[in-house]
Design a protein around this nucleic acid. Structure first.
Lengths: 191, 191
DNA sequence: GGCCTAAAAGCAAATTATTTGCTTTAGTGG
DNA sequence: CCACTAAAGCAAATAATTTGCTTTTAGGCC
């Protein structure tokens, strides 16, 4: 009933860390090979060289585990590229964001993250947080350069939210033109 | 493996329709009583007076069934209220939409809908379709009155998407002021 | 280093959910 | 009214999940 929560502080070299790593790796491997509906906890356990009960006790159920893996994969590995101006920084970031999120694996990861209910793990919140951080980097860079740049929350409302909405509900990747138009609308002077 | 798909054409008075109705009713009843993680297919089957295998064969798994029920509950039961002007029509609709979607049951239903993968049932698409229809009614009314009104897709990008994004990823209901500000931005003359 | 402790993992039995082959029933069209 | 088909029931087989208990492991302390 009450699901597991995933501990935040795992000593880096310890057994917990090794188990977590091998389970995550097993999940990634299996998801890349087979249909998600065929991935089960006993299967993952076998792949990871771990007993199923370990996974049940640590993650609670498949959904939480998939969400945990997805959040990690959705974490950006680098700050947005510095292209010389805030406008092009944002445009480039947005195009990449839209592409990644609209891809098959991207969509699956978003679904996994949203489907997990875990009130304390706040998976969806983490993803949103990553996006905010990335946008903040662009915003800070703009300020250093003395360029005008809208509030990060405004960028989320105007640019990120529509991209995500289309992907989630319309099952459509916004075209590059559409994304650029949204960026334009955000960065154009009359704001 | 290959999940069930839910038939579109069920003869109204038939046995299928009765089974569907009693299963849906059982799901709604159970969801209102207990935690969603305690709701299982055997339980629903018992409540509905049906065998579990019937549910498995028709819906495939719990997720698909919950999504099926959720889509039905998310369908608006009436067109948006006619308040005399497009601006107020939209404001009123948006506030109600935000409230409903941000409520506990609303969020749960959205999650259920998004979590179901069923490529042919297109649950999320249906929800989005309902929203479009509602907005189109407001737009048509505006046109009849000779009022200016933005494109429905623009309304989705500017108003609906941010509301939904905040609910899904930030776990926050947009405040009434925020919603009204978005409406304002959409309906203000400089667009 | 060796011992103690707590946390996490393994194991296996019990429970519960899911799948499946076959039978029965209800609705439809001749 | 009878035959046919689609969906439901039933029950046995399989698979997943939970749980109590045992074992291992890493960290802290002499």
């Amino acid at each position: 009933m009450a699901p597991m929560n995933i501990r935040e502080n795992i000593r880096p070299g310890g057994r917990s860390a090794r188990v977590q790593a091998s389970v995550h790796k097993a999940v990634r491997g299996l998801l890349s090979t087979m249909d998600r509906s065929d991935v089960t906890i006993p299967l993952i356990a076998t792949q990871a060289g771990v007993t199923p009960s370990t996974i049940y006790r640590r993650w609670g159920d498949l959904q939480e585990l998939l969400a945990d893996v997805a959040v990690e994969r959705l974490r950006p590995d680098a700050p947005p590229k510095d292209t010389g101006s805030a406008h092009t920084d944002l445009a480039q970031w947005a195009e990449q964001y839209a592409d990644e999120m609209a891809s098959g694996p991207g969509r699956a990861m978003i679904r996994d993250v949203l489907a997990s209910v875990g009130a304390d793990t706040r998976n969806a919140g983490k993803c949103c947080g990553y996006t905010r951080e990335q946008l903040q980097v662009i915003a800070d860079r703009a300020r250093e350069r003395g360029e005008a740049f809208p509030d990060v929350e405004t960028v989320i409302d105007t640019l990120v939210a529509p991209i995500m909405y289309r992907i989630l509900f319309d099952d459509v990747a916004p075209t590059s033109e559409k994304v650029l138009a949204l960026v334009e609308c955000l960065m154009s002077p009359q704001r």
